[in-house]
């Protein structure tokens, strides 16, 4: 990962860390791996991370990316007792979450404002 361009954009709003993506298509295995490593590095610096992943402008997402989201979810919730929210998911991608029933695992909000307001 060292020396490669970051695949995510990070914004802090108080205690909430908001992550969005530089790519419209999150399909490439190497990119997905890098995204997970970058997010994990952020989580690991926080005691109880409050992470908002914003999918604005993301058009495609593979099951490998879903797998990494689950890994991040497990790390935040089980390992750190933190909170994770997802927002701005394109309706077609949301269908992928519904088919795989991951809409029940993740807390998904329509937009960033509603997601931010949902943190406890």
């Amino acid at each position: 990962m060292a020396g490669s361009e970051s695949r995510i954009k990070v914004k802090r709003d108080g205690s909430i860390i908001e992550v969005s993506f530089r790519d419209r298509n999150i399909l490439d295995e190497a990119n997905i791996q890098q995204i997970e490593e970058e997010i994990r590095a952020i989580i690991d610096t926080e005691e109880q991370p409050r992470l908002l992943i914003n999918f604005t402008d993301v058009d495609h997402l593979s099951s490998a990316a879903l797998g990494k989201l689950i890994t991040i979810h497990n790390r935040i919730r089980n390992g750190k007792k933190g909170q994770l929210r997802l927002c701005n998911i394109d309706p077609q991608i949301l269908q992928v979450f519904v088919i795989t029933k991951l809409n029940k695992l993740f807390e998904i909000h329509e937009d960033a404002e509603k997601a931010r307001a949902s943190f406890k």
Binding site: K68, I70, H73
Partner: peptide, 20 residues
């Protein structure tokens, strides 16, 4: 992959999505 015991596993969803 949608079974309760598998829902938190990070893999195994590709074929299901293809079929869907």
């Amino acid at each position: 992959p949608t079974a309760e015991e598998n829902i938190e596993l990070p893999s195994g969803r590709g074929l299901m999505l293809i079929r869907s």
